[in-house]
Structure formats: structure tokens, C-alpha cells
């Protein structure tokens, strides 16, 4: 019986390979208890987070119904009753998505949710909103009806006025369809996914204390130190927020 081989460059946990370094960085940023927590601060009990969750759920439904539409094509979604039903679900889940995403945005704006090293969390939320507008716009152009023709001919002058029309041609149906079903969904899903990871990483922003200003008091933003009180929302206490933490 022989002893197991000794790693050439010391212990595996101290390896300098990029895979090991990436693993250590991921474990450090997202330990399992932070990625899937069972404890949250008391101030999570707020409608503004319900709005965020509804936005994510409706995005999942947008993508799901979009995949069904892609399976069968425009003749199906324009003529059959089931196709019209899925087409309507695709539209109304987008309506719900924007409705609650904007409510979530309003709420987080008035909470100054970028405090405590949460600037990137705020920024990814805003960027996902902007990319979602482009995704919805190309969706309207991809309906394959008179409505989409009208929108594209009205929009072309505006897009051309920006100079982007030379490359991003709203009258080019194939290009708009590909943007709508490939590039922009990937973009929205990736940015929303990053947004959720950052919420896990930094934690949700603590509420203001009386007399606080938006440029201070945001917790330490390490995603764990802000968890205060006891184990659940109902018995948690208001957080003690240190002053002078830069945003």
C-alpha cells in the first residue's frame, strides 16, 4: 500500500491555479448560508421586496411563455385560441413585470438603497430596467401584425436620429427578432441574476434612523452584519446602524 501522492504545489486548498482561486473567491463571496439564507433582518418585512419578487416571478413567466411562442410560431399565436392565450400571457406578464419593477424602483429610490456599498446593486437594477425596455420594444416589433409595422415605421426616425439606425435597424424584422429572442433575454436574465446575487452578497439596505441622511448610515454592506435581532422577521428588532459608513 502506498501513500497518496502529495500535490506538487502544496495543499490543494492553497493551489494557485485559477480554478482554485475562483473557487475560493466564490466560497468567500457566497458561502451557502448567505446564498440561501434562512435568517433575514426584520426590515425585510416590507412590500417593496414583495414588488421585487413579483418582478422576478413575472420575468420567469415572460421567458416561459416566450419559449412556448417560439415553439409554434406566429401563425399559431395569431390564429389558434391556445396560441392567442399564450400570446396574451406573454404580453400581460410583461405588463406585470414592468408595473412591479417600477414600483420596486420607486421604493428603493426613496430608501436610498445604494447606501453601504450597495451602489452596484442599485446600478444593476437600473440597467436591467433599461435593457428590459429594449427587450419589450423589440417584442412589439416582432408581433408580425399591423401594430408592429406601425411601431417600426414610427420608431425608425427616432432611432435614426440617434445615429444608431445604421446598425440597429428597426425595419429589419430578422434583426429585431433575434435581438428579442436571443440577445436581450440573455442580457436581462444575466443582469437580474447579478442583481439578486448582489442582494445576497451585500444584504438588503437597513432603514434610516431618525435624523439620518442618504449619504450615511447604510450598514457595513457585508451581507451578514446587517442581520440583526433574533431569528425571524416577527421577533427581530430594529437594527443598530452605525453612522459614517460611506455609500
Amino acid at each position: 500500500m502506498t501513500a497518496p501522492p502529495v500535490p506538487r504545489h502544496g495543499r490543494a486548498s492553497e493551489s494557485a491555479q485559477w480554478t482554485a482561486r475562483a473557487r475560493r473567491a466564490a466560497e468567500s463571496a457566497f458561502p451557502p448560508e448567505r446564498l440561501l439564507p434562512d435568517r433575514q433582518p426584520a426590515y425585510l418585512g416590507s412590500w417593496v421586496y414583495v414588488f421585487g419578487v413579483i418582478s422576478v416571478v413575472s420575468l420567469v413567466w415572460v421567458i416561459t411563455t416566450g419559449c412556448v411562442l417560439a415553439l409554434f410560431g406566429p401563425t399559431w399565436w395569431h390564429t389558434s385560441s391556445v396560441g392567442l392565450f399564450f400570446n396574451s400571457m406573454h404580453l400581460w406578464s410583461v405588463e406585470v413585470f414592468f408595473f412591479f419593477m417600477v414600483l420596486h424602483l420607486w421604493g428603493k429610490f426613496f430608501m436610498a438603497a445604494w447606501r453601504g456599498k450597495r451602489r452596484l446593486t442599485w446600478a444593476t437594477g437600473v440597467i436591467s430596467f433599461v435593457v428590459s425596455i429594449a427587450a419589450a420594444f423589440t417584442g412589439y416589433l416582432s408581433q408580425q401584425n399591423f401594430d408592429s409595422q406601425w411601431i417600426s415605421t414610427q420608431a425608425k426616425d427616432g432611432i435614426n436620429a440617434t445615429g444608431a439606425g445604421a446598425f440597429w435597424n428597426v425595419l429589419n424584422f430578422g434583426q429585431m427578432l433575434m435581438w428579442h429572442i436571443v440577445l436581450l433575454p440573455i442580457g436581462v436574465a444575466a443582469i437580474v441574476g447579478l442583481h439578486i446575487l448582489l442582494v445576497r452578497r451585500r444584504g438588503i439596505v437597513p432603514p434610516f434612523e431618525v435624523g439620518d441622511h442618504a449619504d450615511g448610515a447604510g450598514g457595513d454592506g457585508d451581507g451578514s452584519g446587517d442581520v440583526v435581532g433574533t431569528t425571524t422577521l416577527e421577533v427581530g428588532t430594529a437594527p443598530t446602524v452605525e453612522r459614517g459608513v460611506s455609500a
Binding site: 418585512g45 412590500w47 408595473f99 417600477v102 416577527e234
Partner: peptide
């Protein structure tokens, strides 16, 4: 208008909490 109404209701209506301890 519906968004403004829902936003106002979210401020006014208290968030429901469970009664017991975990």
C-alpha cells in the same frame, strides 16, 4: 394612476407579520 395607488397603499398598509416565535 394604478401604480401610484398601489405604491401609496404599500406605504399605508402595514406588512403582515406572523404571530408566534420561530
Amino acid at each position: 394612476i394604478a401604480m401610484i395607488v398601489v405604491f401609496a397603499l404599500a406605504i399605508i398598509i402595514p406588512f403582515p407579520r406572523h404571530g408566534g416565535k420561530d
